[in-house]
């Protein structure tokens, strides 16, 4: 049994009103511990609603959510405890900064968990380092930081709670290429170092392709598919129809295949594409020698 599992999870907004909308429709997922998973889907596909169930911010209309083997909402007194196992970083997390100093802001979560001052201090310093915020920045007001730094400070605030699962909703939205690569690199590093489960919600297939190993595709409030990268990118055409953009290299090689160049590989990174071209050339030369 995985760290996050749902059983026929359904969530309906505005039940009994004319605005009734099924946001999550009978979803069954099972995510293994230690996995780094991309959750993709266009706006309104239900991905944001889904992840808010994973730490009990939303209560399912019907169905069940299990975190680390324990059912959410089964025992209300355990809810807070379970919630701390799943850290949720919202879109534009820098908008939730409020403390006088960066240090205090990162410490907000750990303090709410009732940790000792020593433990809080250790965690704040450790995560600040991990997200690349120097010690000199910790005593500054979070509002004095640059855009990218603010975002990293906000993510550190959730990382410092040391959740078993870290969920990030569009962590690179609105950043420039440098800021984007920095955040993605930081997430990968965090996953490698801590070995915890990471869920990355995004509509950028490019970011997802670079970072994760498995992908969950949401479409029309349902799970379209859940599998490893190549099995998902093999459906590039359907993904495009859903309003998602597959990486440019994927499109190029899909077209080459359709034009009759013979290969079965799913291409989603530039490195892979380069190796594939070199391999195909070698095969071609080999054939012409015969």
């Amino acid at each position: 049994m995985g760290i996050i599992r749902t059983e026929n999870l359904t969530y309906i907004y505005g039940e009994g009103t004319p605005f009734r909308h099924v946001a999550v429709d009978c979803v069954n997922v099972d995510i293994d511990e230690g996995e780094i998973v991309g959750i993709i889907g266009h706006t309104g596909s239900g991905k944001s609603t889904l992840i808010q169930h994973f730490n009990g911010l939303l209560k399912p209309t019907s169905g069940k959510v299990f975190i680390d083997g324990e059912e959410l909402f089964a025992d209300k007194s355990r809810l807070k405890e379970i919630r701390f196992k799943v850290g949720l970083v919202f879109q534009y997390p820098e908008h939730q900064l409020f403390e006088e100093t960066v240090y205090k802001d990162i410490a907000f979560g750990p303090k709410n968990m009732g940790l000792s001052d020593d433990e809080t201090d250790r965690r704040v310093k450790e995560t600040a380092k991990m997200v690349g915020l120097g010690a000199e920045l910790l005593e500054k007001s979070p509002f004095e930081l640059s855009g990218g730094q603010k975002r990293r400070a906000a993510i550190a605030g959730v990382m410092a709670m040391e959740p078993k699962v870290l969920i990030l909703d569009e962590p690179t939205a609105g950043l420039d290429p440098r800021g984007r690569d920095r955040i993605l690199g930081m997430i990968k590093e965090y996953h490698a170092e801590k070995g915890t489960t990471v869920l990355l919600v995004s509509h950028s297939m490019e970011d997802v392709a670079k970072t994760v190993s498995k992908i969950l595709v949401m479409n029309d409030s349902k799970v379209f598919m859940y599998g490893d990268r190549s099995s998902v990118f093999a459906k590039a055409e359907q993904l495009t129809e859903m309003g998602l953009t597959v990486p440019q290299v994927t499109r190029v090689f899909d077209r080459l295949r359709a034009m009759g160049i013979g290969f079965d590989d799913e291409v989603f990174s530039i490195d892979y594409a380069k190796d594939l071209v070199m391999r195909l050339l070698k095969e071609k030369r080999g054939e012409s020698v015969d």
Partner: peptide, 16 residues
């Protein structure tokens, strides 16, 4: 809408 979002975000950080 924004208030709603901020409330959810702080709740996720354990605000009671």
């Amino acid at each position: 809408e924004e208030t709603d979002k901020i409330m959810s975000a702080q709740k996720a950080r354990g605000a009671d």
